[in-house]
Write a protein that binds this DNA or RNA. Structure first.
Lengths: 341, 341
DNA sequence: GAATTTTTGATTTACGTACGTCAGAATGTG
DNA sequence: CACATTCTGACGTACGTAAATCAAAAATTC
């Protein structure tokens, strides 16, 4: 059987109370004694039984998810996943609170971050906006001892502990290769539709996409990026206009959300032209479009996995425990019409 | 706080001992009383605290993984993942044993299954071979009350509880679409290399591949499948010969393991012809080949995920608990050179 | 209605850890 | 050396559940 606190006490030649003081960094232990205990712990390879410890402490993990109130399927899905996690709260000892903030508004995010009671929060997950004030709000929180995980969109250069999302540069490059290879040797224009260049994930996708396009598919020329604010109506108008005005467009990369509008525009034009389309995020709309052949490939991040991963990471961090790194890697899912889940 | 056994006792107006008898299906409770207790459980929404229960029971999950002793990177990786799980045994309360059996030998698998002491096994995971005698051995085990999960390759028509692996028909179809689209409108022959038509996963991949090829890419004609027994040497010889004898080959789908041999053959011919290649399983060899442009896409199943999932499923089944279905879905990973982990 | 069997209750110990109290020992200070 | 201070040990209770014992109550049988 695995060693217990009693075994430590026996090996170190001290009492249980002293072992407990050392394990839980309570005062009242001389340096020498503390060292003896720590040595015994190493020697017998003691590992705290977290389940028993949580039981004894009656531990709860009060977590906060700060999510943008965007009206698109991906964000709806993310919300739903967090709510499902809330449904599992009792068996996972979590107490998850959702704070909704307006999308793309740094000040709102900062306000939400600053509103958190430091003592009463075991961890925070947020969909980050890449702005200096957000950066420093996150750093403040981390400095106050609260574990922070970025979700979907990262915030580099801060002290956030973990990023639960995909590698968006790789996503952009992958989209470029798919589009480039699917188009064979054709020559023409490629349209890109983003949500906003304010969020890091969209910027990075575009960056990766543009880079690979330039490197490997010189016969395809990139048009200036359109920004649809992840809003279906706006996207629809932008795409419709672009297709009307430019007959050379043969490929589209939609790297944001709000694909409802894109799909509508494509269907209206559908019969007239053959377009190769790569989009992001598997939703009911993109799924249907993929099946119908309106979209050729969908790149996806599994929101459920991201939420579960964020929770695992925050809990582990709150307990000072390790993780299974591979389990927390969020992969870029590529869906063709044949491998839909 | 969530309700406890004491609350059940209070609500049902019985003693703790009776509640315990009902919860753990011990004898000595009248039907009416049992019903009253069960009603109280539903009423207050009691859920057993598994951590506390396991602590009290000192529960251990003795699990068995039956793995083929194949000499290829994928199986090595699978072994490694199980060994890693063994390393986590103490914190997960598992006691995992690996039984190695010769690959593609049904009798060996049956012998391994029959050797298991029913009482002392909380669950079995096996890489199945699709043969009648294996089928009935699995059914025997399930009938004896042992949870069984198939790993990587499934065994339909049996009472196995779960399959931890990818949808191989979808995998074959996906490979076909990638190959077909990457080849643009070219005309020519496509070669398929399998390990063995004895294992269901390979058969299904080929089936999916052939079907989609016929449906959507009539200009590509499929050559008869080659069987390399997942052995690098054999694969190398088969591919080399095929390429020498047939100048019309423009695409290859390698749906099994042992890709070392395929890659060697491709590199030898590399300069002379342009081939589009889709292979299975991300290993150090296929990864390097993908980077070098020798292979165009790799379809992968995450062995680590499969092993962790199998363990979760077996434990949940042993405890009669539910799962998060989405978490146990093994996806088909598609890797291009741009989204390698 | 007495004897027997079955059902139920009350109580205890245990799992591994957390955490508090109190007394006593060791150490340090003057 | 007396005293204050710091360490340490012994012990108890708690978390939620499992499991066992023994006595008491209820139901069943004859």
């Amino acid at each position: 059987m695995r060693p217990t606190v009693h075994d430590i006490a026996a090996v170190a030649g001290v009492s249980l109370a002293t072992v407990d003081r050392v394990l839980n960094q309570r005062p009242g232990v001389r340096g020498v004694t503390r060292q003896r205990v720590e040595e015994a712990i190493r020697e017998i390879g003691y590992v705290r039984d977290v389940a028993a410890a949580n039981l004894a402490k009656g531990r709860l993990y009060p977590l906060v998810f700060i999510l943008p109130a965007s009206d698109n399927s991906f964000m709806h899905g993310l919300h739903a996943e967090v709510r499902q996690a809330i449904g599992r709260a009792s068996s996972e000892r979590t107490d998850i609170r959702i704070i909704e903030v307006p999308a793309f508004v740094p000040a709102a995010l900062v306000a939400a971050l600053d509103s958190l009671a430091v003592g009463a929060t075991a961890g925070v997950a947020l969909v980050a906006i890449d702005a200096p004030e957000v950066r420093s709000a996150v750093d403040r929180l981390v400095a106050a001892g609260v574990p922070v995980v970025t979700l979907v969109s990262d915030l580099t250069g801060t002290s956030r502990h973990h990023y639960a999302g995909v590698d968006n540069i790789a996503a952009g490059r992958t989209a470029a290769r798919l589009l480039g290879r699917f188009l064979g040797g054709l020559e023409g224009d490629v349209l890109t539709l983003a949500g906003s260049m304010l969020v890091r994930d969209h910027r990075e996708r575009l960056e990766g996409f543009s880079a690979l396009m330039a490197e490997e598919f010189p016969r395809l020329s990139l048009l200036p990026v359109l920004e649809g604010r992840d809003d279906p109506e706006t996207a629809n108008r932008l795409i419709s206009d672009a297709l009307s005005n430019n007959g050379r467009i043969i490929g589209i990369y939609s790297l944001g959300a709000g694909n409802r509008g894109l799909i509508k525009a494509l269907k209206e034009r559908g019969a007239q032209r053959e377009l190769t389309v790569v989009a992001h995020e598997l939703t009911e709309h993109t799924r249907a479009a993929l099946k119908d052949g309106v979209i050729d490939a969908v790149l996806n991040q599994d929101a459920g996995h991201e939420v579960r991963s964020a929770i695992r990471v925050l809990k582990a961090h709150a307990d000072g425990l390790g993780l299974i790194a591979a389990q927390e890697r969020i992969r870029l899912d590529i869906f063709l019409k044949d491998n839909l889940p």
